[in-house]
Design a protein around this nucleic acid. Sequence first.
DNA 1: ACCTGAACACCGTTCAAGT
DNA 2: ACCTGAACACCGTTCAAGT
Lengths: 232, 232
Amino acid sequence: MAQQVDTARRAPLTRDLVLRAAVELADGTGIDALSMRKLAQALGVVPMALYKHVTNKEELLDGMLDVVVGEIDPPAAGEDWQRAVRQRILSARRALLRHPWASRVLESRTAPTPVVLAYLDSMMGMFRAGGFSVDLTHHVMHAMGSRIMGFSQELFGAPAAGGQDAAQDVDPETARQLAARLPYITEITTRVAHDDASVVGSGCDDQFEFEFSLDLLLDGFERLRREGWTSR
Amino acid sequence: MAQQVDTARRAPLTRDLVLRAAVELADGTGIDALSMRKLAQALGVVPMALYKHVTNKEELLDGMLDVVVGEIDPPAAGEDWQRAVRQRILSARRALLRHPWASRVLESRTAPTPVVLAYLDSMMGMFRAGGFSVDLTHHVMHAMGSRIMGFSQELFGAPAAGGQDAAQDVDPETARQLAARLPYITEITTRVAHDDASVVGSGCDDQFEFEFSLDLLLDGFERLRREGWTSR
DNA sequence: ACCTGAACACCGTTCAAGT
DNA sequence: ACCTGAACACCGTTCAAGT
């Protein structure tokens, strides 16, 4: 009876509920605003109650990433390795883009969770099934780096963004000085601005850049595989 | 006279002195231990005194990165583009490795400083001098990502590390279960362990992996350049 | 005018006191 | 035995009071 009153007053907290609430909070207000105290408040619970379900904040972040990784599609069957890997990585990218905080949190982790390990393992399996040696699969996974999770860790979103921002809301004289000091950045930002009015914001099409370098790498891998490349 | 007493009591603080002390502190005790309060203490100064030379902690971190970027060698003259870019990036890597906190801080920045912009600009100039079109130079810079600063943003240092760590200090039965659940990671870690006893620690040679993927990218770039690749 | 101590508004986590 | 409020040991930064 007393138990019934308790559960009526508030749905019992579970680890899953905590993680889902944390993901939702981070999606909505950003990862910087996610604190144990704020999360507890969002759940209508005292901060200490969270420590029943996660031992500390690190484990909370790990759990949140597991939620995101769980959204990645399984490998497609009946495709050649390159198309299958490409599709899966683009699925991972969609999951990462749905949760803008995820890539930054992923970067901050020092050890993978079992869920992430399982994802990496299945990705390795896709290369092995495609005829890659153990040796080449190993190095190929390193070369993919964070791209295997669907993000490219570019510098500042886009290297050109700073130059462009600086160039456009500045008087002509300062713009000329900037162009003299940073001729190549200016050259590119000018070209990008002329090129394609459909791309807004930074002036760079992130998805295009991601696929450009992804395909460059995958083509390189295929070439090494065909040549029977070995590290020794 | 009063001034002389002041300077005798303590060398006057400059922005440069603050930045150098911050770099030294981060090198010694790690970036997590670097707080405005601790830095002030290391300089024998009250925390508020730092705010004379940097407007906030973000600007301090930016300044620290500028110190690191200042350690990167200028472009070598008289080399073909690929050798010159390769050498310079490996120089950047040496600078980054000297300051283990730098890559993580770099990832956390949202806008490049003028010093970083100048470095990126000169790197673009190396591609342009090597016969790359504005268009291709643009996409090539994106594809390089953080590699242009000399680090590769691998996942957890090495994807295999977790599997290997877990596999080696565990009883045979658990190891067998792990091998069944993560067959491809196990396959690679086993191979790496047999392969080369000279590599210690994680079992992966970070420098080899960095150069492997760097050369894969540079070779891909050269191929596109020769073929007169264009995005439209 | 300059400098700085105390204070503000937060953290993640510990721990002892209360039910 | 369980739960939780207060407290601890920090943050970056503001601001008013003192010299």
